[in-house]
Write a protein that binds this DNA or RNA. Structure first.
Lengths: 267, 267
DNA sequence: CCTTCCAAG
DNA sequence: CTTGTAAGG
């Protein structure tokens, strides 16, 4: 049994003031992947940086207050790798991998982009390099007999069922045709599986992000952009998946909600 | 009878959320001079911008979110003047004058400075130009038979009794020998009177500003930098002066407290 | 320590 | 609308 949670904390310092720490203390997960930590390790309060019972590794961005990913594990990782071999992105606080027995777990924070701007070009550059990396990762993992799951904020919805207002967002970053096609490549060409969608093929959402603007959260006008993208062998072991909307964290300590998957032990 | 209050609000938008509006509603003053408004008029909520029963005039700074002075009066002013004829400072949101029958009331926000930096040079430039202006103002007012009071945050303490920690602040902006000497010139050469000190010659303070850092307020480690500097004829009419420390505005909607003087009617 | 700004999301 | 940063105080 392996329980993995992914959550974009939107600033761990702000989240720590609003309920992240008790949420983590109550979590049953074996691994928690964080995105948008937005702090250097030294700036994070102890309760969040070295919580009782967890090993934590951080990959902050070179730019202060930006991006930053982390992985919290109950057992110490066998190995830790920062970045994915990209000159442009390895110091941008967007990718971190840890090896646990038989499985590699990654925390990814893909650039959010903005249609028609240089930020979108950057997102496309990241996507290009990262897809190549994912293919190699799957091959290496297969050769070693290990599974992989890339958790994180992918900042892309694949299908209409993945966001409430898909019609009005067809020209917005996160649901552009090129982005959707790319995510299709991650599944069809690189051979990964969107675990939550595989378990819930016919549901709207479940959304994991709601804008702070307007009444997005109250209207459940959300996006399913926080994904667990796994190798088929691991995906086949997924027995349960859920998103913690307001019910379980009513304090709303982030604009994203935690996405959890329970993976069975053997095959 | 003329009651005049001066207060540095440290951002009128923040102050308005913390109690400035009810404080104003409960004020007995005829004139209230504000400093550090830190907003353009359009950004100020109505309750603070056009409060019931007041006429308000604003002199914002060209730089957004900086400085800014205002004068609130119960009767409409006869005339309003922004700045004091300085090319460098007239758009800096630091000086505003209104003429009321027989008396000119000004709201001043003197640069705070920082010892040994360009900011201190700017403060000295302001002080130089402003002293010249004050001399001319007193002469013109005398010729017209009018009195003058320049209310505001002067950002200088004249004497040791004007700040709690005078020993440790002798090399800090606000209590530098040159600044203290300059305030002496305002009194001795330009002929103005520090009204609150004239009424309370032998008291420590009363302080009107306490840093937000550390426990300055709780320890009453304050500075008396918010002054009413008047022509001798008006100063002679002052019958009462007080600073509203925590007692009367426990919400602490600014790091400064209002300084009020009651001036008798005739001479 | 607090209030603005701005960029980013 | 919220998070950081930075400057200013």
């Amino acid at each position: 049994m392996l329980t993995v949670t992914s959550v974009n904390v939107n600033g761990i310092r702000a989240a720590a003031k609003k309920g992240f720490v008790p949420w983590l203390a109550g979590s049953d997960a074996d691994v928690v992947c964080l995105q948008e930590v937005r702090a250097e390790e030294a700036q994070i309060p102890d309760e969040a940086r070295v919580p009782e019972g967890w090993h934590t590794v951080f990959a902050p961005a070179a730019a202060k207050g930006r991006a930053g990913v982390a992985v919290y594990t109950r057992r110490e990782p066998e190995r830790v790798r920062v970045g994915f071999g990209s000159e442009e992105f390895d110091t941008s606080g967007r990718y971190l991998e840890v090896d646990l027995p038989g499985v590699t777990v990654a925390s990814l924070y893909l650039p959010s982009g903005e249609a028609g701007t240089e930020k979108q070009d950057e997102k496309y550059r990241f996507m290009g390099e990262f897809l190549t990396y994912l293919e190699g990762l799957r091959e290496r993992a297969a050769a070693e007999g290990r599974e992989v799951v890339v958790c994180g904020d992918w900042n892309i919805c694949h299908r209409e069922a993945d966001l409430k207002n898909w019609k009005t967002n067809r020209k917005n970053a996160g649901f552009l045709p090129e982005e959707r096609a790319w995510l299709g490549e991650v599944y069809d060409r690189a051979g990964y599986v969107d675990v939550v969608r595989a378990l819930h093929p016919d549901t709207e959402g479940p959304y994991s992000w709601w804008s702070y603007r307007g009444r997005a959260f109250d209207n459940d006008a959300g996006w399913r952009i926080d994904l667990q993208v796994a190798t088929p062998g691991l995906a086949a072991r997924a027995v349960k998946a859920f998103v913690e909307r307001a019910e379980t964290h009513p304090e709303r300590w982030s604009d994203h909600a935690p996405v959890t998957v329970v993976y069975e032990a053997g095959v």
